[in-house]
Design a protein around this nucleic acid. Structure first.
Lengths: 207, 207
DNA sequence: AGCGCTATCTACATTTATGTCAATAAAAAA
DNA sequence: TTTTTTATTGACATAAATGTAGATAGCGCT
């Protein structure tokens, strides 16, 4: 056995690479892919190095939750901010697209299946709360006077968008297949949902 | 150490008890709760017994996927069948409630995070496909002529109900909190969604 | 060039999880 | 009762994952 050539990184670099590899493995392999040995191998380093940087396997996983939470947050914020300012339909479509994207849904699913393992880790909620507290009024402004409580209605619309996006990202293909939607039709679902939400901007009544 | 008093069960009984305990552990502890040693301890038996009945840890987990898939299927079918026959809103509310319920969402999340581990295990899809192929027309019949393709619209409505339910069950509380919905308001979300879907039965147009 | 720091490595130790086996006991059958 | 069957068990064996420690080598600094 010849001695391995060492690739020495800056600590931040190494941590980042490990996080990226781990995230990819969570997406492609699942939770079973998150052991130090295999993550390290994928990074081309020894598992001792991973432990050096994160202290333990649990440390690595907690760091990954943080990393992915930050990424989710950043994506939501970025996609919302770069959309034309007062255009709720576009904003909601962005939100849907962002949340249903593979990696983010895996994070949510992982958290929901991890018991209390990462209980204290939903930090950043302050940031995202302030984001939504800005977003909700924008949506509310477009609602007609017919709604008795426009703020509540806006919250519900955003909430619907978020839940549908997560469900869509989680088991969308499977359920689409089961209930007879073609792949194309399933892919068109977000746009259709957008239209339906648009209809909520119309006055209520006329049964 | 006194010898343990053995409780001898019928094999079916033992398997069922193990499945129930494992299912509860998946709900309450997460994937980490699905090792033979701890499941066995919760059942009050030795881990060798669990292996005797399922062959291996993987065997136990595969059996659990089957067990929970069957339960999901049974619940969906039962709740739909016991609702007043041609009442789409009630049926969709039932579907939502069933799918968003804790245990079932955990199954879906687990499958989505398990890579190919249970690839060949979505059996029963024949049953559930036939179920939805009956359900969709019932929904479609209530749609107004305004819809160019009522069957497609019905599929989308059912699909929306299913995806929203899963997202709601998966991360509902968290997102509700983040976007400023009170617990009560979040709990009222399914009913609100039902109303919105009802509005889809109204004629389109009048922008 | 020489020095210090530390990221990285290999090799080992430890812990945890899984799987095996022969003995045993509970229940059914004879 | 005796026999047969097999669910159950404890003790052991093995495998897999995690963690530890000392040595080393890459890189910045002087």
């Amino acid at each position: 056995m010849s001695k391995a050539v060492r690739k020495r990184r800056q600590p931040e670099e190494a941590r980042l690479e490990i996080m990226q590899v781990a995230q990819r493995r969570l997406r492609e392999i699942g939770i079973g892919g998150l052991n130090v040995a295999d993550v390290a191998k994928d990074c081309g380093m020894s598992h001792a190095t991973v432990i050096h940087h994160f202290g333990s396997t649990g440390g690595m996983r907690r760091a990954l939750v943080d990393h992915m939470t930050d990424a989710l947050l950043r994506d939501v914020i970025r996609r919302i901010e770069e959309s034309p300012v007062p255009d709720p339909p576009a904003i909601l479509q962005s939100l849907f697209a962002t949340l249903s994207e593979g990696g983010h849904v895996k994070l949510i699913a992982w958290l929901s299946l991890s018991g209390d393992e990462f209980a204290a880790d939903v930090h950043g909620s302050a940031q995202i709360e302030s984001l939504f507290s800005q977003l909700v009024p924008v949506v509310a402004q477009r609602l007609p006077a017919g709604h008795e409580d426009r703020l509540l209605a806006a919250r519900r619309i955003v909430f619907l968008t978020a839940t549908a996006a997560m469900g869509y990202g989680l088991g969308g293909e499977t359920w689409a297949q089961v209930m007879g939607l073609s792949a194309d039709e399933a892919a068109a679902f977000p746009a259709w949902l957008g239209e339906q939400i648009n209809r909520m901007w119309l006055p209520e009544g006329n049964s």
